[in-house]
């Protein structure tokens, strides 16, 4: 092909390809965008579209927690803090503190695999934010509780639908940060019960908790 015909071939190609390209882009002007407008204009709630085994924010169903700290040991990045203390009556233990720092959690799921009772689990909740990052530390225990002790033949306490516990504990995004302090010891039905009901003397359990949260 001569150079003159190449020259005009180039001009023709440029014109035709620009024309075709513009036709393609124009056709998209008349089509509906595929954007899903998260979060407020989705066809159905985003929570309902999640897969069954979605790993969202962790939650603990405290009435079924044995305070074994297996989760804290399994966590590769020290997200979980479990503190236990000797029961004032001298017999058994008290679960003093169960914190999960969801701002650090990487949703690997190792803790849930370690949990013997299945009280620690991932939920479909995935929305949490805050002005103060310390507000993203979720405290699952307000005050000392008697941990669950499994007895043969008795079922593990039934838990509410996944997500309900942690959703109730998440603070509003603009909440002021207030340092957490352990509350009063309240005798509560820790699910299984271990025959110590009423044995513990009510009253604030002072510090000096034996930390067993290091993983």
């Amino acid at each position: 092909m001569g150079s003159v015909s190449t020259y005009f071939e180039n001009v023709k190609n440029a014109a035709v390809t620009i024309f075709e390209g513009m036709a393609v882009t124009l056709s998209w002007m008349f089509r509906r965008p595929i954007t899903i407008q998260y979060p407020d204009r989705t066809p159905e709630p985003v929570k309902d579209t999640l897969p069954d085994r979605f790993r969202g924010i962790l939650e603990v169903h405290i009435p079924a927690c044995t305070a074994c700290s297996a989760c804290a040991r399994a966590c590769p990045i020290d997200v979980i803090l479990v503190e236990t203390q000797k029961h004032p009556s001298g017999k058994g233990r008290l679960l003093m503190r169960f914190d999960i720092d969801i701002s650090k959690c990487m949703y690997c799921g190792l803790c849930t695999e370690a949990c013997p009772t299945g009280c620690l689990r991932h939920t479909p909740v995935f929305e949490a934010t805050g002005r103060d990052i310390h507000n993203l530390v979720v405290h699952f225990v307000d005050g000392p509780v008697v941990p669950y002790k499994h007895k043969k033949g008795r079922p593990v306490p039934a838990s509410p639908p996944p997500g309900d516990i942690v959703q109730a504990l998440l603070k509003p995004w603009d909440a002021e940060y207030v340092a957490w302090s352990p509350g009063e010891f309240v005798e509560r039905d820790a699910g299984g019960g271990d025959g110590e009901k009423g044995a513990a003397s009510p009253g604030k359990v002072e510090g000096g908790a034996t930390g067993s949260g290091s993983g």
């Binding site: 024309f19 075709e20 513009m22 036709a23 393609v24 124009l26 056709s27 002007m29 008349f30 089509r31």
Partner: peptide, 13 residues
């Protein structure tokens, strides 16, 4: 022709 090609593209998709 531009609109015809655009229409063709819409129908192709």
């Amino acid at each position: 022709g531009m609109f015809w090609r655009a229409w063709y593209n819409i129908r192709a998709g």
